[in-house]
Simulated assay, not measured.
Amino acid sequence: MKNFFLLLSIMLFFSCNSQGKITLRQMNENLLKDKNSITYRDPKTIKMLTETYKVFRLLGVKSCDIDPDKKYSQIYIEDGFHDEQGFYNGIFIINNKNICEVTTSPYKLHQDSLSYRKVKEKDISYGEMVFYTKKLSIEDFKTKYHDEYFRYELVRQNKVNAFEKCLAIDQYTPKSIVYARNHYFTGKKIQTYNLPIKYSDIKNGIEELPYFKENKKKEFTECINELNILKIQNSSIKTSSFQ
Rank of each mutant, 00 (worst) to 15 (best):
F163K: 01
L167N: 02
S137F: 02
K144D: 08
D140L: 07
K165G: 10
R151C: 05
K165N: 12
Y179V: 12
Q191Y: 13
N158G: 03
L167E: 09
I138V: 14
Y149N: 03
H183N: 13
H183V: 06
P174T: 02
A168P: 05
Q171F: 15
A162G: 11
D147K: 08
L136P: 00
Q171A: 14
T143E: 07
R151M: 01
Y172W: 12
K165D: 09
V155P: 03
D147H: 06
T133D: 00
Y152M: 04
Y172T: 04
H146N: 15
N158V: 15
Y152W: 09
V178L: 07
E153C: 04
D140N: 01
N182W: 11
K189G: 10
N182P: 11
K135Q: 09
K144I: 09
I138K: 02
Y184I: 13
Y152N: 04
I138T: 11
L154I: 09
A162T: 10
T173G: 02
F185Q: 02
K188S: 14
R181F: 14
K134V: 06
R181Y: 10
V178P: 04
Y145L: 03
F185E: 12
N161T: 15
I190F: 05
P174N: 04
Q191I: 13
F163A: 05
Y149Q: 07
L136R: 01
R156S: 14
Y179N: 15
R156W: 11
R181A: 05
Y145I: 07
I169M: 06
T133Q: 04
T133E: 04
Q171S: 14
Q191N: 08
H183F: 15
Y152H: 08
E148C: 06
T143W: 01
Y145E: 04
G187A: 07
R156A: 15
Y145W: 06
E139Q: 09
D170P: 02
F163V: 09
